[in-house]
Design a protein around this nucleic acid. Structure first.
Lengths: 296, 296
DNA sequence: CGGATGGTTTTAGAGTTGCTTCATGCTGGA
DNA sequence: TCCAGCATGAAGCAACTCTAAAACCATCCG
């Protein structure tokens, strides 16, 4: 009888391309994975890996087995999920990540409610940008991630994941006190072409998006400054160094003087929860989605 | 992660009705099965078995899990089978049973040929009546069984098994030397109504069939004698104690005096090989079927 | 050419698992 | 009430599977 752990090891090698990457995902040493695969080769009587340069390559037999393993492992997770659903009660452990703003403006209230409604569920929380959190959900290190996309750029959802909408989050422009348009009731983005801008963390999904959005109205957008936190960014705005786009979710107090102006064509981002489709029926997942939605 | 061995234990309990029966099928002690199931309960966090009289009963959660397990275990065996098929070469071990006549008239030649063509395949052979061999194939104790049915009574095939026709085997009537119809070229069964008959082993498929077949021409068939081997039965016929129906397959020398007479409406039985459908693609299974067919 | 580098396999040893045996508990029928 | 049948629990032993460390191997680069 084939062993599930071994199939999983092989599957991970196929997915992540090397023994060491697989070991990483499975949280064991490469030695363990290597030994498991050697045993799998003995059991099946077939060569599964061959050395290929510094790494390994799967043989045809291994590819065949991986195709089966994929279906088998998926069925197994579905079985677990169904079993939890049958139990009905929300218990156990849920590992959750959220992007920074949600972490402040959305998650705390949701989590308080989730804890109150389901005291036996242990939620482990961490802050993570969508670009990083979604692969972690796929590989099983996270059960759920709170992510967002912008209305002008839909988020690509990795295979095997499902998403549910949590809410929409409108963003405004924040201008320095002495900005010529500071007195306006609303402003169009292209009126701000040529202004200097302040962005958040350079390798985050937000920064990418800001660049592409400004490019639509300004061939050479000036993103002159960068700061991780909105509070810091607002200080820079107060000092007259540039504008920012500030989502309403998780907004903190703005310093005196700076002006928050709504956009004529509103920019909004949509907040989602994502999870593995095999886990869709877990009561803990359902409860977390409900809690996130009700906190808005 | 659920463990396949544990799922299999649960599945066996569901299929065979008790922990001890399951242990029997899995070739371990009841204690081992009991411990595995206890562990499975801890892992899933749900009660799976409850005591019921002297035995156990599955809970709803267990039934749910069994339904999943069925699909998972089937996929796993298919994967193994596919993997062997991919390898192509006929190696490993094949456990085969055949009904008594086939054991003598069909299997020896087939097996010699199979061994010659595939020296690396180890075939384990045993004699077993179809009524017993087919459940053994289902439960995995046998890989293949050679069985037969009669043209007037198709064989019911258990769920999950497949069959392939090997050959047809015509049967004649054997009459004592002094029988009034002993000189005939052929005879109709109903002409023999009222004669005494000799059958083989009382709990075999052949004896059942003989009874039902004779009843079609004789409301009160007289099955007066019983002997396990055809050679013995023929001696009884030679002694004038009754008639027998003798299949041509595996026929041994008939004693002097007794007369073999073909039937007007020939009775024939069809010989099949049966195997688990999950194992259908195993090269060893294919090779064995081929060898059986070519030996006819 | 030769050492540094990134990756895999091998080996030895420790901890864990899972089996068997034996003992115990529980239920239903003689 | 006792016995037979079935399930569970504890102790001991064998097998497994992990980690750590070292060996091995192909590539890259000075």
């Amino acid at each position: 009888m084939l062993d599930l752990e071994r199939l999983r090891a092989l599957h991970s090698v196929a997915t992540y391309g090397s023994v060491s990457a697989a070991a990483d995902v499975l949280h064991v040493t490469t030695s363990a994975v290597s030994q498991q695969l050697a045993k799998l080769e003995r059991e099946t009587g077939q060569k599964l890996l061959e050395r290929n340069g510094r790494g390994v390559r799967l043989t045809d037999a291994a590819e065949l087995l991986v195709a089966h393993a994929e279906r088998i492992l998926s069925l197994v997770e579905q079985a677990q999920s169904d079993l939890e659903a049958h139990r009905g009660s929300v218990v156990g452990q849920l590992t959750l990540a959220a992007f920074p703003t949600a972490m402040r403006g959305l998650v705390p209230a949701s989590l308080r409610r989730l804890n109150a409604d389901h005291p036996d569920l242990r939620v482990l929380l961490r802050e993570e940008d969508p670009l990083r959190s979604m692969p972690l959900v796929s590989r099983g290190d996270l059960d759920m991630a709170v992510v967002q996309d912008w209305n002008n750029e839909p988020l690509p959802l990795p295979d095997g994941l499902q998403k549910g909408v949590i809410c929409d989050d409108v963003a405004d422009v924040v201008l320095p006190p002495d900005h010529p348009l500071a007195g306006r009731d609303e402003v169009a983005l292209k009126e701000l072409a040529g202004d200097p801008w302040i962005s958040s963390s350079p390798d985050s999904i937000c920064c990418d998006w800001l660049m592409r959005t400004l490019r639509a109205v300004d061939s050479e957008p000036r993103i002159d400054h960068q700061a991780y936190e909105f509070a810091t960014q607002l200080s820079l705005v107060a000092a007259g160094l540039g504008n920012i786009i500030l989502p309403r979710l998780g907004r903190c107090d703005v310093p005196p003087g700076v002006v928050v102006v709504p956009l004529k064509e509103p920019l909004s981002r949509r907040v989602y929860a994502v999870w593995r489709e095999e886990a869709a029926r877990r009561p803990a997942i359902r409860a977390a989605v409900t809690a996130l939605r009700s906190a808005v």
